[in-house]
């Protein structure tokens, strides 16, 4: 009898925790739509902040632009080193000593708090190299932050490609780079793209590193490398923290979450596409 009750309680625990996760996500999304949805309009998306103090009225266009600039720059900076490192780990180094060390370093990098990356870029870029608070510094900080994400996801996508292809190609005497270019890379493309998208989403949501390197309360976000930019997550923080406008804060949060969920879902569908390809 007592046993049956324990069993029932355990089962209750498992179900409740599982369903709670679902409820949390739904609650977040529904609440944001409820509070922020009514304030989203074409004006909100396409206009600059207005009113006094700035931000109490108007829109968030420069913040959207700034975020896009930041993640674009982060990707431009990190994609080549990220992919080459992944290629080294999956095709060239394999299980060698150097690859082991690089794997360890990349893994540790993934665990570094993003504010630390911000701190580093602040000292190196903003102060020492004289970039100031700027798009360039922010893009650089975000690039460091997403580098391990790109490496790990691309490495795993490449490693998932059928080993037989490498064996066959190798037996024909063709080079690794030729095999990579003609067979392995195209075969892993969906998975790699999914990883890049995840990295983009991660960068778009990051606040701490840009807060100390790139973000301004008001900026035009023209794309000039050495100018500060606005960014969605930082703008949300300011709207709330400076008590500018709760309504705008909810609407900004909704735009940000919407953008990230969109990227996330795209990435998820690409990785399931990749899984289907791999099973073939």
């Amino acid at each position: 009898m007592k046993k049956a009750i324990t069993d029932l309680l355990l089962l209750g625990w498992f179900w409740v925790s599982g369903l709670l996760i679902l409820v949390i996500l739904l609650a977040i999304i529904i609440y944001l739509i409820w509070r922020g949805g009514p304030f989203i309009s074409s004006g909100f998306i396409l206009e600059s902040p207005g009113g006094f103090p700035l931000g109490t009225e108007g829109g968030i266009f420069p913040a959207i632009k700034g975020t896009l600039w930041l993640i674009l720059l982060a990707l431009v900076i990190s994609i080549v080193p990220g992919l080459l490192t992944a290629i080294y780990l999956s095709e060239y180094g394999r299980s060698g000593r150097l690859a082991e060390i690089i794997n360890l370093l990349v893994q540790s990098m993934a665990g570094i708090p993003s504010i630390i990356t911000g701190l580093f870029v602040y000292a190196l870029g903003v102060v020492t190299l004289g970039w100031g608070i700027s798009l360039l510094a922010g893009g650089f900080a975000l690039a460091i932050m997403v580098f391990p994400v790109i490496v790990v996801s691309s490495r795993d996508a490449l490693l998932a490609v059928d080993e037989n292809y490498r064996l066959v190609a190798n037996s024909l005497g063709v080079s690794k780079s030729y095999t990579l270019y003609r067979v392995i890379f195209p075969r892993a493309a969906a998975g790699i793209t999914a990883g890049l998208l995840l990295a983009l989403g991660y960068a778009a949501g990051a606040t701490a590193p840009i807060m100390v390197t790139a973000a301004a309360v008001i900026a035009s976000s023209s794309g000039a490398l050495l100018e500060p930019v606005m960014a969605l997550p930082y703008h949300l923080y300011i709207l709330f923290n400076e008590h500018l406008s709760m309504n705008h804060a909810y609407a900004t949060a909704l735009v940000l979450v919407g953008l990230l969920l969109f990227i996330n879902i795209l990435a998820l569908s690409l990785s399931s596409l990749q899984e289907r390809i791999n099973r073939h």
């Binding site: 037989n164 292809y165 066959v168 037996s171 003609r182 075969r187």
Partner: peptide
């Protein structure tokens, strides 16, 4: 040249 046990078609 070498041919393996499992027939391998490159994804081309």
């Amino acid at each position: 040249g070498m041919v393996y046990q499992t027939p391998v078609a490159l994804p081309l």
